[in-house]
Design a protein around this nucleic acid. Structure first.
Length: 745
DNA sequence: GATAATCGTATTTTT
DNA sequence: TACGATTATC
């Protein structure tokens, strides 16, 4: 290896990292535990390859999110300049398909459907087939379709494989769904991957071109790749065999989306001669944090043994803190942050991590009440808001007139007298002509079929469409095009007065995004912008460490790190989420359960110095207070390096009478008034101090998991969990002699 | 055909 | 709770 490159590319790296960075040609798997510097290895390896003579254009780096791609681009840019292609699988495939999809007989102006678009199609198909929406839930159907696509199984295969009525119906819906998308010249997220594989299979000469171009392929987060993605990676490295995959099986948290840990586990079989390098030294966390996380995830059975070590000090203990309710938990987090800031007079990077999005509300309220700046990293961002989707639909339709979903979305938005009935007729007329709706009405197919009034309305719409097409075509910028659509449709005027301001704000953000897009992609056109608006998420725009606390889900926390982490809501049906508990099998734990545990592990390993884990005994779920209580995962933490603080013992509580029963009085009606601000949830500091009541029932507050309980039949036991069942409570109590029993009280 | 009121169901996680 | 979807009314 060239000696002179060592200093700036290799300095500060440990032995295994250097080995990975300087690995020569051939397949390489880097199994990198949390905090072991895997991103560094990738960026340095790219720099090394370039130093060693590879052209930047010959390198393709695949990341899991656009955000990660951007970050990597920045880091590679600093070390080795520009020109390396860094993208997600989805955006790379979109790029390939825009250029090559004509080989598959499709049109390069295709729309990309997000999940809600796809769901609309599935709903319509289900309705058409007159399927009972109870038994055949569109969302489940779509998940199934997606699973088939992940496995590159076309509808015919799906039908063959069906072993139940449900499977058969799903296959039928799948087939129709595919036809509908093709007619609309649209691809869904999965199609981006699947069509790319098809393209490569059917047209080896196209594949050969990409194989020739990309001599080096590096894939990050390999543990979360699915089958199609694996096929794409395999195809791309087919000529030079220079694939570097980096990942950590313990951080597989997307199996629900088809991620396969086996892609890592069986890497050597798939890529013969592959070298495997493990990165086992953790540079991020204190020993206590690392130890707690490792100990916990070691409870998974389906796992390859991996030992992480650190040379940092033990640090302060991991603190586990219980609370009576979710509001108290949030309050405690806010106060703890303030205390810390006052004591140290500094603002460390802080993350509040939770399992589900809806949990953010309590924290937003508490933080703003205490004047703590925060930002919610919300993935249901700008582009999924109705207002933005409406305007985007016009743009989609201009780019791709066949886009039936877009058309159906806006043909009567703002209302222009084209109701369900007219739309229905128009759809029928279009079907008769064999054309998608917009082309059909542009052709005047509706003229004879509609009553005068409806015809006029449709004619007006056609006129508007033509006008918009022209405007967009003539617009000097992407922003200009978007602006004209907003103006010419008179969209804002149609919004109810009290929501108009908010809509305006959202659209302003959208416009700002268009402008930003153009700055970054001077060559970019409307099609490119529309693509970005579907594939990008708000996480991509989020900037860490800006002197505010970050609120985010465990999933979106992947790959990030904070000085201080609050892992909150670590409760019975929240962290192992209730949905994961459902399919628990009798013999042991389900796959889903293990994934929840990995999620817990991912959360803990985000922390550098301080880790708090907290739970509440009660929280609002679906508008009702429910008992949750300690997560079973907490029992799996090591005793060393973890300190416990049970929730506040509020009020006197008569636990036992002579008969070992406990009395129960009326539970105070608790409520929390939380008016959700309709504004953008991103990066803003709310000033409101909502009323915060909570479950202040002293009895309940004292009935904490972990509490010793005397039972007249079974003796003393430890309360494991509490669930409310109507008027009664279901108590799970661990008795030394009998094990865990469930008692209805 | 548009609007308001009511009803029912969903909340895991995301490219 | 809170949203979307269906229904009732104008």
């Amino acid at each position: 290896m060239p000696e002179n490159t060592d200093n700036y590319i290799l300095s500060g790296l440990n032995e295994s990292q250097i080995e990975a960075v300087t690995f020569g040609d051939g397949p390489l798997l880097v199994v990198a535990g949390a905090g072991s510097g895997k991103t560094r290895v990738i960026t340095h390896r790219i720099a090394y390859l370039i130093e060693r003579g590879a052209a930047p254009e010959e390198i393709l780096g695949i990341t899991f999110t656009n955000k990660a791609a951007k970050e990597m681009e920045r880091r590679v840019g600093e070390m080795a300049g520009e020109g390396v292609m860094l993208r997600t699988f989805h955006s790379f495939c979109a790029l390939v398909l825009r250029r090559q999809i004509h080989h598959l007989g499709l049109d390069s102006s295709f729309s990309i459907y997000d999940r809600s678009d796809s769901l609309k199609v599935v709903r319509r198909v289900c309705k058409q087939f007159e399927l009972d929406p109870e038994q055949y839930k569109p969302a489940d159907m779509l998940n199934r379709i997606s699973a088939h696509k992940d496995g590159v199984e076309p509808p015919e295969i799906a039908a063959e494989k069906a072993v139940s009525e449900w499977d058969e119906q799903a296959a039928r819906v799948y087939a129709k769904y595919e036809l509908t998308l093709t007619d609309s010249n649209a691809l869904d997220f999965d199609d981006l991957l699947v069509k790319t594989v098809l393209l490569f299979n059917k047209h080896p000469e196209v594949l050969a071109r990409y194989q020739g171009q990309y001599k080096y392929l590096l894939v990050d987060e390999y543990q979360d790749t699915n089958y199609v993605q694996h096929l794409i990676a395999k195809a791309l490295q087919g000529r030079h065999h220079n694939i570097t995959a980096v990942g950590d099986p313990d951080q597989t948290i997307y199996t629900w989306r088809g991620a396969r840990m086996e892609n890592i586990m069986r890497f050597q079989e798939e890529f013969p001669g592959a070298r495997v390098i493990k990165l086992e030294r953790n540079y991020r966390s204190t020993a206590n944090i690392l130890n707690a996380a490792s100990y916990s995830v070691a409870h998974n059975i389906n796992r390859h043994e991996k030992v992480l070590y650190t040379q940092s000090g033990s640090g302060s203990p991991v603190e586990v803190v219980g609370h009576s309710g979710a509001a108290q938990e949030a309050e405690w987090v806010a106060k703890t942050i303030n205390k810390h800031v006052q004591r140290t007079e500094s603002f460390p990077s802080i993350g509040i991590l939770y399992r589900t999005k809806y949990q953010s509300g309590e924290f937003e309220a508490a933080l703003s009440k205490h004047g703590v700046p925060y930002q919610v990293v919300d993935t249901t961002g700008l582009f999924e808001r109705k207002v933005v989707k409406d305007i985007a639909a016009y743009l989609h339709l201009v780019v791709n007139p066949k886009d039936n979903v877009a058309l159906q979305r806006i043909i009567n938005v703002p209302t222009r007298g084209i109701g369900a009935k007219t739309l229905d007729r128009v759809t029928k007329v279009a079907e008769a002509t064999g054309m998608p709706i917009m082309p059909a009405i542009l052709d005047g197919a509706h003229q004879q079929e509609l009553p005068p009034r409806a015809r006029k309305a449709v004619d007006n719409f056609v006129a508007l469409y033509n006008h918009l097409s022209e405007e967009c075509f003539n617009a000097s910028s992407v922003r200009g095009a978007v602006e004209r659509v907003i103006n010419e449709t008179d969209y804002l005027a149609s919004i109810k007065a009290d929501e108009r301001e908010e809509s305006r704000e959202l659209l302003d953000y959208f416009l700002g995004f268009a402008e930003q897009y153009q700055e970054q992609e001077p060559e970019g056109d409307l099609t490119g912008f529309m693509e970005l608006s579907v594939l990008a998420s708000d996480v991509d725009a989020w900037e860490p460490d800006t002197g505010s606390v970050s609120l985010l889900t465990l999933h979106s926390a992947k790959g990030l790190e904070f000085d201080m982490v609050f892992l909150v809501g670590v409760e019975d049906r929240i962290l192992p989420h209730s949905r994961a508990l459902e399919d628990r099998d009798v013999m042991g734990e389900s796959e889903a359960m293990e994934e929840e545990r990995r999620l817990f592990h991912v959360g803990m390993t985000r922390a550098r110095k301080t880790l708090y884990i907290s739970y509440a005994n009660e929280r609002m779920i679906r508008g009702q207070y429910e008992y949750t209580g300690e997560s079973p995962f907490l029992q799996e933490l090591p005793s060393d390096g973890v300190s416990w603080e049970k929730g506040p013992r509020a009020g006197g509580f008569s636990l036992t009478s002579a008969k070992g029963r406990w009395s129960r009085k009326s539970s105070g009606v608790s409520r929390s008034k939380k008016k959700k601000s309709p504004k953008l949830k991103k990066a803003k500091i709310k000033k409101r101090a909502p009323e915060k009541h909570a479950a202040n029932n002293p009895e309940d507050a004292d009935l904490q998991p972990g509490k010793k309980i005397q039972h007249d039949k079974y003796g003393e036991g430890t309360l494991v969990s509490i669930n409310r069942a109507g008027e009664k409570k279901l108590l799970k109590i661990d008795f030394p002699e009998y094990g865990v029993l469930t008692i209805l009280e």
